[in-house]
Design a protein around this nucleic acid. Sequence first.
DNA 1: GTATGAGTACTGTACCGTCCAGTTCCAAAG
DNA 2: CTTTGGAACTGGACGGTACAGTACTCATAC
Lengths: 202, 202
Amino acid sequence: MDSRSARKHEAILEAATSVFLDKGYAGTSMDDIAKLAAVSKQTVYKHFSDKEKLFADIVLATTERLDTTIDLLADLPTDDAGLEENLTRLARQFLTALTAPRVIQLRRLIIANADVFPDLGTEWYERGFQRGLATLAATFQRLADQGLLRIDDALLAANHFSGLLLWIPVNKAMFTGRAQHTEAELDHYAAAGARVFLAAYR
Amino acid sequence: MDSRSARKHEAILEAATSVFLDKGYAGTSMDDIAKLAAVSKQTVYKHFSDKEKLFADIVLATTERLDTTIDLLADLPTDDAGLEENLTRLARQFLTALTAPRVIQLRRLIIANADVFPDLGTEWYERGFQRGLATLAATFQRLADQGLLRIDDALLAANHFSGLLLWIPVNKAMFTGRAQHTEAELDHYAAAGARVFLAAYR
DNA sequence: GTATGAGTACTGTACCGTCCAGTTCCAAAG
DNA sequence: CTTTGGAACTGGACGGTACAGTACTCATAC
C-alpha cells in the first residue's frame, strides 16, 4: 500500500529532517526541502500546510524514535554481583545514545527555536526528556526495592545520574558545534559517573 | 571622556544586548536596535561594521561580565567545621547565578547560533564555561590539599558538581523557554547536589 | 563651521506561500 | 491488454514581505 502519495510524503519528511537538523529552522528554505526530496514545492505544501507544521512534525517524529531507544537501554539486570559493572555499562550506552550527532542536533534545533515554538519545546521536554528520566528512575527504583540502592527520590537520582554523565559532553557539543568525543573519553566519563553515583546512592 | 560618540556606542551595545537576548539573532533587525538605542541606523553602522560584528561584541561582553561573577562566588572558606553547609551555600549561589534569566538567554543565544558562529561558540565555551569550571576546580583542589576532600581530578570533580546541580534546572530552562524555578526548588537542588557530591568526594 | 548624527528613502536579496499550464501516475472499465 | 478519467505531481513564475546595508539631505552639538 505504498501509494505514490505516501512515498512522496515519506521523502519530504526525510529530506526535511535532514535539512532542518543541519541548517536550523530559519536557515532552511522550503525550496531546499523540495529539491532534496526531489519533489515540487507545490507537493510539499499539499502534504504539509506550512513550514511550521512540517517542522513540528519532523521534530516530534524524531523525538519518538529517541524515546524507544532510551526505553531499550534502561533495562538493567538486577543481580547484585556486578552492580557497578552493570551500571557503568548502562552509563556508557546512555552516553553513546545521547551524544549521537543526530540527537545533539535535535537538541540544538529545539533549544534554538524554543522561543518561536514554545509548545514544541515543552512537548519535547516532557516526551523526550522527562519520559526518559522516568524510565531510568523506574529502573533505579527497582534496584532500590531489591536493596541494591538506597534511594529516596528515584527521579532525582535519575537526574543526578544523567547530570554526572552528560553535563560535560553535552555542553561541549552544544557550544562547539560538532564535538568529537573519543571512545576513551566516553569510557572515562561513564566509569567516573557511575562511581560517583554509587558512592552516594549505594 | 564620555564623548558623544562613546555614549552612542554604549547605547547601541546596551540596546543590542537587550534585543538579541530577547529575540535571538535572526529575530532581531538592525532597525530594532537603532530604534531602541534612539539612534539612526547609519550611526549603528558607523560603530559596528555589520550585524555579525555587533552580535559577536555583545556576546563576548556579556560573557566577560558572567566570568567575574563566577570568580566571586567560588571563594569558599576552608574551615573544616561547616563543610557541607558551606558547600551547600556555594551550590545555592551557583544555582542562582547560572539560572538567572540573562544567563539562560545567553546560553540559548549561543547554542542557537553555534552553527553560524562556530568561533563564537568555542570562545564562549572556553572563556565562559571552562574558565568557570577551572575556578571551581581550583577551589576544590584547595579543599583537597587541606584534606577536606578526596579528589583525583579536580576538573572532573568540578564538572560533577556542576552537573549534579545544573542538569535539571538548566535543561528545563533551555527547552521550556522561560522556566520559573521557585526558591524552594533551588534550595532542594542545592542541598541534594551538595550531599551527593560529598558522599563521593569526602 | 565642521564633524557627527537624524530621518528616510532606496537597492538588492531571500524566501514563504500561491497560481497555473502541462505532465505523469494509477486504477477501474471495456 | 488498451483506454480513459481524475488525482497527484512538475516546473517555473509571481506577489508580498522582511530586512541588511547604502545614500542623501537636513539638523544639531561642540
